[in-house]
């Protein structure tokens, strides 16, 4: 017989936990070397950011799901941190191969990159936990109001910046289930069709810059 929705969700959670190293709550030796190779070592900033965002996440999770659920929020954040480090390492290995460089100082000191990567990791963990509630059409004990784009408000991240990491994240983490990939694709479509066009989105500034640089370029004469 097919697994019950609860059983299917439990299996997905177990797989997610199993794919993440138990000591993965800190950078591996390889990732630490990438940090050390930077012109400016990002180790302290990365650690400090995780502490700040972890507190913000737990607080908002408690507000949305109830104070008795704060511990579940902390567990989910812990899993997301392991996924964040794992995917970051895979992304850097792939970039090293592609660009033949080992110094990723600019990328690794970019707060938006780290926040986007963490947001994507959290979204994957949250979606894995809430899979059963989607399939049931109901809500689990934490409620469905925690689903995307809830995480963007919690981490104060623009949808446009979140969008940038999705494809690289999927490429870097081959163990993601089809359901999770489909979920990330749904987030991507939501951003592209609606959220990135809301007032205040950095997309407008970027479009303005592109327009200005295009206007400054001399117009090429038409080829005969």
């Amino acid at each position: 017989p097919p697994p019950t929705p609860i059983r299917a969700a439990m299996t997905s959670i177990q797989m997610l936990r199993g794919d993440l190293p138990s000591n993965g709550d800190r950078p591996s030796a390889t990732l630490a070397t990438y940090f050390k190779n930077c012109t400016v070592d990002p180790t302290q900033d990365v650690q400090k950011r995780l502490e700040t965002l972890g507190q913000a996440f737990s607080q908002k999770f408690g507000e949305a799901a109830g104070p008795h659920c704060v511990v579940y929020g902390q567990q989910r954040f812990g899993l997301a941190v392991r996924l964040y480090y794992k995917v970051m390492e895979a992304m850097l290995k792939s970039e090293e191969k592609r660009l033949s460089v080992q110094n990723f100082s600019k990328l690794l000191n970019d707060a938006t990159f780290h926040t986007s990567l963490l947001a994507c990791s959290l979204e994957v963990v949250m979606a894995t936990y809430e899979e059963s509630s989607f399939k049931n059409g109901g809500g689990d004990q934490t409620g469905t109001n925690l689903c995307f784009p809830w995480i963007l408000n919690v981490l104060n991240l623009s949808a446009f910046d979140f969008y940038k990491v999705i494809e690289s994240f999927i490429k870097a983490e081959p163990t993601l289930s089809k359901d999770i990939i489909k979920h990330l694709e749904t987030c991507e479509n939501l951003i592209m069709e609606r959220i990135a066009w809301r007032t205040g989105s950095p997309l407008f500034e970027l479009l303005q810059q592109e327009h200005a640089s295009a206007a400054a370029e001399p117009v090429e004469t038409t080829a005969s």
Partner: peptide
């Protein structure tokens, strides 16, 4: 099918998306 459609070219990666190449 739920296969993800990859849009990035071989010469593009996360470094370019955050303007860091």
């Amino acid at each position: 099918s739920h296969d993800y459609h990859f849009g990035l070219e071989e010469h593009e990666g996360i470094s370019e998306l955050f303007d860091c190449d």
